[in-house]
């Protein structure tokens, strides 16, 4: 038996919105510690790793490990029916073929209940393991989203060049070129506006703009995004949850 109650439906809504355009369905792996997902997009370029730790929930129990195969488009439609501020409880019996979803309005005496048919998903997992990191950039997630959108008008690739004191985002396309430079900044009054760059080794990596467009759909989940880059390796883009994370691993583009 799994039962997890979110204080606000908006959190699960944001998580599903951030994932559903990249992967159509995925397995939710539920254990006593929380719920995790690993899913790869069809082109096997972008991997999503989600961890919703037990502490994220107002109430949580999972007596036995269960795997719930979920169609994200369908889940999105159902959870779209609840108000952002509703309590949202998901539950499933062991060996269940459906996920029970209940919204409770905090003001009105109103309870809405839905069942989502579960899917049997046979997905092979990638062993991403712990990765070395050459450069780590933390910046406001809205700023990163704007950089990705602005650079996408120029090219289908975004180049990220990190040196000791700056990160350069560069696009070179048929119509012209664009550069955006950000530098570390500590904002004591607004810590969420701070930018940090830590570097062991300079980085010069390129990523596909269309995949970055998928990643920035997670912007509303966290005020900050942490980008971990390693030479000749996939980039990691992490949005922290109140307890857990939504992480994207994006394979780079190399010169032919």
């Amino acid at each position: 038996m799994l039962e997890g109650k979110f204080e606000e439906a908006s959190l699960l809504k944001k998580i599903v919105e951030a994932m559903k355009d990249c992967v159509s369905s995925c397995n939710f792996n539920c254990t006593e510690n929380g719920i995790s997902v690993q899913a790869v997009d069809n082109s096997r370029v972008l991997l999503i790793s989600l961890l919703i730790e037990k502490d994220t929930f107002e109430e949580y129990r999972c007596d036995r490990n269960i795997t719930l195969g979920v169609g994200l488009g369908s889940l999105s439609k159902i959870i779209g029916n609840g108000a952002n501020s509703d309590y949202l409880t998901i539950s499933a019996d062991d060996d269940a073929d459906k996920l029970n979803i209940i919204f409770e309005d905090k003001v009105k005496d109103k309870i809405s209940e839905y069942n989502l048919k579960l899917l049997d998903i046979d997905a092979d997992l990638l062993d991403v393991g712990p990765m070395d990191t050459d450069a780590t950039i933390t910046l406001p997630s809205a700023d990163f989203a704007k950089i990705c959108k602005d650079m996408k008008v120029l090219s289908e690739s975004l180049q990220i060049i990190v040196t000791k004191d700056s990160a350069l985002f560069q696009s070179v396309g048929d119509i012209g070129t664009g550069n955006i430079v950000i530098r570390p900044k500590t904002d004591i009054d607004h810590p969420e506006e701070s930018v940090t760059i830590s570097l062991d080794k300079p980085i010069d990596l390129s990523f596909g703009s269309k995949y970055l467009s998928d990643i920035i759909k997670a912007t509303s989940l966290s005020q900050k995004v942490t980008i971990k880059l390693t030479d000749q390796s996939p980039g990691v883009f992490e949005y922290k949850l109140p307890s857990g994370y939504l992480r994207f691993y994006l394979a780079p583009k190399f010169d032919e």
């Binding site: 596909g208 394979a251 190399f254």
Partner: peptide, 14 residues
């Protein structure tokens, strides 16, 4: 022109 790599080139399948 740049070539898009896939994750399978970096991570083994479990």
């Amino acid at each position: 022109k740049k070539k898009q790599t896939t994750l399978g080139e970096f991570f083994p399948t479990e």
